[in-house]
Design a protein around this nucleic acid. Structure first.
Lengths: 391, 391
DNA sequence: AGCGTTTGTGCAAACGCTTGTGATAGTAAA
DNA sequence: TTTACTATCACAAGCGTTTGCACAAACGCT
């Protein structure tokens, strides 16, 4: 442990580590009973044991008595090298347990074979599932995936983009935070020619490829189904007004009413920040204001689940008195009682698609043109809205 | 798009891309109505637009007319450089929008400021939450986190370790897959001096630092609580027999019986692979075999939730006829009806602890000794076991 | 024999940054 | 005035790979 002196008594033998606070090492002086923190300086820390000199192509070259370039080429089956030499090189490489240094490779190749993914939150199933889709494709072609969470903060989103860029990711797959409504951090890097793909929550103005869930249609299907079940006064609990998915899912909702020959009541459209508290507050307000409401369509499943729990506490019977539907097919929806009707957006598939588009793009190189794909999903009808067989 | 020719008709203008299969680009020839795949060769792909020559310290040096070393030192506030020079350098750097090339830095420093985390599965809340804890600490001190999922496969776990190592992560935080019971991939790298920390599912023989949830005590608390509620024949649904958490949680379970002055019935101990199917099958078998069973303690929350759903379907009343408890405090447990009694293992805190231990270790450098920390949690009593007030 | 091709290999310059070692001043002590 | 620092900076050798180019030997043709 680095010798740190107490800020009070200046002794060092009474000091113990005591956790981290905001990236600062916290210490405790047993003598003075005094806590303090100091900025960690990883640059000045004692040089830990050198990474053992792992074998390089130089070592291999020396052993066999050829040049490094020959080794380099031999290892990647370059046609210039004779079969004989290749075999020798490969064998020696294996014996020496040679591992190419990815860093050096990236430096010379000017590409890292790494893609950066930015999602709002890894703890929600929806994003985790997309992520898994992305990783499956990426790892199949030998690409690594770096992940970071914006935690719904625009600031950290920007910071994360920045980190990825300085780490030379070959591309950026991003789903914006709810807060984000300026996109300079994207534009800048787009201009620098870094492949960027937006998914789910996208900014339409940006000239990037995009992968979308079928928000409009999904929402339409949910609403149409509810109307078909005899629900008349369906309130929609949406996200922030400017958010892409809010706009699109609202669109589908309205469309369903139009198709049914009626029109939605603007008073039943609620914008929230999709936190549990905000949603439940809105639900209560709505129910107080308007006793005719017979259904809630929340554009997030976890929100819908919370609504179900809440309504049940109030003694309201679902779906007989009030129906509830969600969007996203979160596993919880299948477990709650009554189970939740939801739109299944095929998140895993979505992740795969995003990754595929990225590889398409880098294969196309300069003559790539941005395109938008839509991942189809399917309505999952469960008990929370099911009153009678569909006509 | 790279010109690919149809394997049948050898035309190229009728070819369109059609997804990825196992890392191979799939093509479709519209003329022959024929699908085929070819191996992507990212090395030979057309060199996309060069990453625009982003500004380097060389550029800065040229502009001001000092040497690169001066610029390098100035930017990191080295004491050798005069304040005046520093200011100039920093200003020019800002004007040129200089971004240090992390790759080059890593190469010379021989460290990447990146830590690799391997978890079985990112889609389960438990791990995602640990991950978030890790990331919070890491990003606070300017470290990046690379994540990969083993998907409970030993093989991919090994592959992931390998990838991380060739990418020179500064350390490895790992939670083993259920399958894993050989640890050569860890031993090897441990010997090479790479800091490795195991968490949750650990291999005790390995001389690494470890972070554990309080499996024994947690399980003990759950069981003791159930006994206190009057449950007598409590079956435990565990994981694979060799799995660390299985052993420990079983230990706590047995301990609780001992403390109560009775002993557990070995017939009520079930090992499963923790998949939904296996668990439910065991439950059914148990119930058929032994009608006296009045409670299930599943060592995974999702398992417990599935059991609840299953029992409800069978018309069994919970907790009156049969009680159910879980482990992990998965959010679903709070939502299901009846809500699930569970042990909350403080996953976020666990993640933080793991990260802290890593930084402790690299700060200690060579004179670090492996240590084991245990993260305390707390019992959360909910309706699935609650029959009467605790004595 | 003369000449143009292959074939197989080595040289050396990048890639962008860090850092040990000097070098040159100016300044203070002797 | 000499000596001894100190402050400030430049040089250059890496870090481990990739890759354009040169070059020599071998081969096939007239």
């Amino acid at each position: 442990m680095p010798r740190v002196k107490c800020k009070k008594c200046h002794k060092d033998e009474t000091i113990i580590r005591s956790g981290f606070i905001r990236g600062r090492q916290r210490f405790f002086c047993k003598e003075c009973d005094y806590y303090f923190t100091i900025q960690l300086d990883f640059q000045k820390r004692k040089p830990s044991r050198l990474k053992d000199h792992s074998t390089t192509i130089i070592d291999i070259a020396k052993v066999i008595g050829v040049s490094v370039s020959t080794v380099s080429r031999a290892l990647k089956d370059h046609s210039d090298i004779s079969l004989e030499t290749k075999n020798v090189v490969k064998q020696v490489a294996a014996e020496l347990n040679y591992q190419p240094n990815t860093l050096a490779q990236s430096l010379t190749r000017r590409e890292t074979r790494t893609i950066g993914v930015i999602i709002p939150d890894i703890e929600t199933y929806f994003f985790a599932s997309i992520l898994t889709g992305i990783q499956s494709i990426a790892s199949a072609v030998g690409y690594k995936v770096m992940i970071s969470q914006s935690r719904e903060s625009h600031e950290t989103e920007v910071a994360n983009v920045h980190t990825f860029i300085t780490n030379w990711v070959d591309g950026l797959l991003i789903c914006h935070s709810k807060e984000t409504n300026t996109f300079d951090h994207i534009k800048l890097n787009l201009k620098r020619g870094i492949p960027i793909i937006q998914f789910d929550r996208v900014c339409e103005e940006l000239n990037t490829s995009k992968v979308l869930l079928d928000d409009v249609d999904g929402s339409f299907q949910v609403t149409e189904h509810m109307i078909g079940q005899g629900f008349k006064r369906i309130a929609i609990i949406a996200g922030p007004e400017r958010l892409y998915v809010t706009r699109k899912r609202l669109e589908g909702y309205l469309k369903a009413f139009r198709k049914a020959g009626t029109s939605a009541d603007p008073a039943l459209i609620c914008y929230t920040d999709l936190t549990k508290e905000a949603i439940l507050k809105q639900v209560d307000e709505l129910l107080e204001r308007d006793r005719t409401i017979d259904a809630f369509f929340c554009i997030s499943d976890i929100g819908a689940v919370n609504i179900i729990v809440h309504l049940k506490k109030k003694g309201i019977r679902i779906p007989h008195e009030i129906g509830v539907a969600g969007f996203g097919n979160d596993p919880t929806g299948d477990i709650i009682e009554p189970s939740l009707t939801s739109f299944n957006p095929q998140t895993y598939k979505c992740g795969e698609t995003v990754a595929q588009m990225f590889f398409d793009q880098i294969l196309d190189g300069d003559d790539h043109v941005a395109q938008t794909k839509m991942v189809k999903g399917n309505l999952i009808v469960r008990s929370s809205t099911f009153r009678r067989p569909e006509p």
